[in-house]
Write a protein that binds this DNA or RNA. Structure first.
Length: 870
RNA sequence: GGGCGGUUAGCUCAGUGGUAGAGCACUUCGUUCACACCGAAGGGGUCACUGGUUCAAGUCCAGUACCGCCCACCA
């Protein structure tokens, strides 16, 4: 091993490529690599097949990789199953955009050709995100990769739909839906977001039919007035007492509409009178239902293209916004506009297209959720599914307890087609395919044109990926899975539905734990988003800093918090840590010449100490991972390696390593630490640890860290008394270094004598680390400066170096500090109820503290008077 | 309007009742052959505010302010 020729900088590029290739080639990621009865399974959240890697992915999937690798090292048979989601709207949009560039629409191609084209796109360009995952080193079983539109998966989707349909859980109904006029489909409530835009509030006069005056109504959407069926006022609103029941003439039409009473209008708002348009507003729909109007004959004035339907009027066929202008102009011309105000209009925007949602009355498929939700609520209440952090339990429960029916159908072409078929007389049957439907119906059928909401199929992910509805070995072995790692914004959209579907179809929860990780924000706390220009590309960071640094920089910030910030500084820190690991391992390897395995015997204090620290580190990492707290694990690893191992242990044993006679034990301890650290660190930084570990003498080329045991420390390493013994020596060293620095004595210089009084242990480590030729247990006669730590006095002769006035100032500052420290403790002890009621060990601790502080103050007084005398 | 978080060093954050912590940044010193992507030492905090519980509160309770997110509503 001639590592002195190796760069002092860790170069991740070639290391990462090499090991990923080796791992894949060896088949490490497949559970078949090593069978066990103890199984662990994660079916990763399938990213959109159109997606590309962003920081949120990098974090989410790194966490799952850590968990998978950790469990493997603990002897589990691990399956981490990857895959992609067909993402109905997103994918359809990609291909529609391509067509647009060719000057075509999907309607030019027709349904069949269009769907073919999407498949072609998917096969050629889809799923690049999974290739990007490999750059991060994820140990997922690629041989079991699934897609939510795989044929078997498709069957699973239809089976669930048909089951629910036959159980009466799925029904067809005419409802107000969020219509996306750009994509020409309905979208669910959770696929739209709210945005306030500057607009106008129009106050219109609706004349009374008897000519006795008018009622003023306010609207932000004048074009919908063509489908008004009433004007409503609150029964408590005294202004309209005399008008109730009267008819109004609906302007621009030849219709008359009633003035009705309903709780919905808020008397405080505007005139207190609201126009009611059941076909184009969800609240108005509710009012309409209460009025008892027939939903099948309710007037409609806007179509699926967001164009106005009003045959025989000049507005017919106009775009909604154009129609708005013309209608306002016409109302003005007729003197029916009372006023027009500037107004901030709350709008619903389609998450997928950015179009303003048009609430439309339409026929859709719905699923009754109450019955499905009940067991899913119980599963979480009873702790059968546990959320981490716990606070998300309430988020989940409050949504589930107020669950509404789910609009399942989408007017798209890309997706799982609703498996319902109609006969010519309108009878509907649900079936796996057209032939089966014809058999069921006994006559020819036509298929429903709609497809299912993408989340309908995602909800089956934890069992459909494992082979359901076939009773495969995989399904039996791995369901229920162990954990779902996800972002908080899809707790409703996805997590809740998986729990419902799993319980309903499998009679068992889909996973025991749900870990909700933090949102990744930019360095200055902004949301990362391509459209805002605040997105950052993980691949660029991987190129510059390495995958291990990328992973670590995110994981070290990820505990039970709800957001983390990522920026250059963060990944530089992680990169520096990688480099530190690299260089420390170079040092260790250089010092393992002639290394032979053997018992750890003749352990000196520092050896026992570092082994105890190593045990503490492995325990901390394990505990942290059990709690899904990556941050604690990363910090424990960082502290152990950098502070304990590098800054202290390596420095202390350098002298022992220089001598052939004394090097055997420190060599073995170095080896043990390096070997164990590689294991403990491996789930977080898989590449660099594998590289270093394989350089350790005696490591089998064909072995891999994923399948070596998690380090188990022998009992005698646990919380060794060496920890306390080292701690005091470290304090003494620190204090001596402090004195040296105060008096301008170069840290590199070896000084003749350090006087240490009141310490009766071995001082060798103090001598070498504080850089002295010898330690004497006496107070020097010559001029010296002193310090006291943990009851131990240290004196540094400084003949000729010290300016008495300056030293006096320093001592007096120290004195003030000591007295400040003493004050509150003494005050506590003077309080009888403290002495009486506090735990005895606390009182005792305070008493000891007072004793030691007083002793220090005495010494300080002596020193001060000595310097006064000079 | 309802809910969930947050407010601790210049910055980013740990800290589940007992002497306020880490990393970065900063100051000073240092290239002694693992590492300057490094080492050593140091300075720096009324723990948002107000009350309460307690011998003891950053920590528990109540309220206030500000920030973030989620849900609902908004003619």
């Amino acid at each position: 091993m001639t590592d002195s020729t190796l760069s002092t900088r860790y170069d991740p590029k070639q290391v990462e490529e090499k090991w990923y290739r080796n791992w894949e080639f060896a088949g490490l990621f497949r559970p078949e690599y090593r069978r066990s009865d103890r199984r662990y399974c994660i079916t990763i959240p399938p990213p959109n097949v159109t997606g590309s890697l962003h920081m949120g992915h990098a974090l989410c999937y790194s966490i799952q990789d850590v968990l998978g690798r950790w469990k493997r090292m603990q002897g589990f048979e691990v399956l981490v199953l990857p895959g992609t989601d067909h993402a109905g709207i997103a994918t359809q949009k990609v291909v529609e955009a391509q067509l647009k560039a060719e000057g075509k629409t999907r309607f030019d191609l027709g349904r069949e050709l269009f769907v073919d084209r999407v498949w072609k796109w998917k096969d050629e360009s889809g799923g690049t995100i999974l290739k990007q995952f490999k750059r991060l080193g994820f140990a997922y079983d690629w041989s079991r990769e699934r897609f939510t539109m795989d044929p078997a998966y498709h069957d699973a989707v239809l089976k669930v739909f048909i089951d629910w349909y036959e159980r009466g859980l799925i029904y067809r109904g005419k409802r107000i839906v969020n219509w996306d006029p750009g994509l020409k489909t309905s979208v669910s409530d959770i696929e739209v977001y709210d945005e306030v835009r500057r607009g106008k509030l129009y106050h219109f006069k609706y004349p009374l039919a008897d000519g006795s005056g008018h009622v003023v109504i306010a609207t932000t959407r004048p074009e919908t007035m063509l489908a008004d069926v009433a004007v409503a006022v609150n029964p408590k609103d005294a202004r309209y007492k005399n008008l109730t029941g009267k008819m109004l003439r609906l302007p621009l039409t030849d219709r008359e509409i009633p003035l009705i009473l309903d709780e919905y209008p808020d008397p405080e708002f505007g005139s207190g009178a609201v126009k009611i348009t059941p076909a184009h507003d969800p609240n108005d729909y509710e009012v309409g239902m209460r009025m008892g109007i027939d939903i099948n004959t309710v007037p409609v004035c806007i179509d699926e293209n967001a164009k106005v339907i009003a045959e025989g009027t000049p507005f017919h066929g106009l775009d909604r916004y154009e129609a708005r202008k013309r209608i306002v102009a016409e109302m003005e011309a007729q003197g029916l506009v009372e006023k027009i105000e500037d107004y901030d209009i709350p709008l619903k925007i389609s998450d997928r297209s950015g179009q303003v949602i048009e609430p439309l009355l339409s026929e859709q498929w719905f699923c009754r959720m109450k019955a499905l939700a009940a067991p899913a609520i119980e599963a979480v209440r009873s702790g059968n599914v546990k959320f981490t952090p716990e606070r998300y339990t309430d988020v989940y429960l409050s949504w589930m307890e107020n669950i509404r029916d789910w609009c399942l159908s989408r007017q798209l072409w890309w997706g799982h087609r609703v498996p319902v078929y109609y006969t010519d007389d309108g009878t509907a049957v649900a079936a796996m395919n057209e032939r089966e439907a014809e058999v069921k119906a006994g006559k020819p059928v036509t298929a429903d044109p709609d497809v299912l909401d993408t989340w309908f199929s995602s909800a089956l992910w934890p069992f459909a990926t494992l082979g359901w509805p076939e009773e495969t070995d995989t399904l039996r072995d791995y369901y229920p899975t162990n954990v779902l790692v996800t972002a908080r914004d899809i707790i409703y959209l996805w997590v809740a539905r998986m729990i419902m579907d799993g319980l309903d179809q499998m009679k068992e929860v889909p996973f025991r734990d749900v870990y909700v990780y933090a949102t990744v924000l930019t360095d200055d706390g902004k949301r990362m988003s391509k459209s805002l220009g605040t997105g950052v590309d993980p691949l660029a960071y991987i190129d510059n800093f390495g995958a291990d640094a990328m992973r670590f920089s995110l994981l070290v910030q990820t505990g039970h918090n709800q957001e983390i910030r990522f920026g250059d500084k963060r990944i530089e820190e992680a990169r520096n840590f990688c480099n530190k690991i690299w260089n420390a391992s170079r040092f260790v390897l250089m010092n393992l010449e002639g290394y032979e395995h053997g018992e750890l015997t003749d352990l000196k204090l520092e050896d026992k100490w570092i082994l105890s620290r190593l045990y503490g580190c492995s325990k901390a990492v394990n505990d942290a991972l059990k709690n899904y707290n990556m941050m604690d694990a990363c910090k424990a690893l960082n502290e152990f390696f950098w502070s304990d191992f590098c800054d202290w242990y390596i420095e202390i044993v350098k002298s022992r390593l220089a001598d052939n006679a004394s090097r055997v034990t420190p060599q073995r301890v170095l080896y043990t630490c390096m070997d164990s650290f590689c294991r403990l660190m491996h789930p977080f930084m898989p590449h660099i640890t594998e590289e270093i570990w394989h350089k350790l003498p005696g490591v089998d080329d064909g072995a891999f860290l994923d399948y070596v045991d998690w380090p188990e420390a022998p009992e005698e390493w646990h919380d060794s008394p060496a920890e306390a013994e080292m701690a005091i020596r470290q304090e003494i060293v620190r204090s001596a270094r402090n004195l040296r620095q105060e008096f301008g004595l170069s840290p590199g210089l070896v000084l003749p004598t350090l006087h240490v009084v009141g310490f009766d242990g071995d001082t060798e480590m103090i001598r070498t680390q504080a850089r002295f030729e010898k330690i004497e247990e006496s107070t020097p006669h010559a001029v010296h400066v002193s310090s006291t730590v943990e009851g131990v006095d240290i004196h540094l002769p400084v003949e000729g170096l010290v300016d008495p006035a300056k030293e006096l100032a320093r001592l007096e500052k120290e004195m003030t500090k000591l007295q400040e420290e003493l004050k509150p403790i003494r005050a506590r002890l003077d309080n009888p109820s403290f002495v009486e009621r506090a735990k005895p060990e606390i009182v005792e601790r305070d008493q000891q503290a007072v004793g030691s502080l007083e002793a220090q103050i005495d010494k300080m007084n002596t020193r001060i008077s000595q310097f006064r005398a000079m």
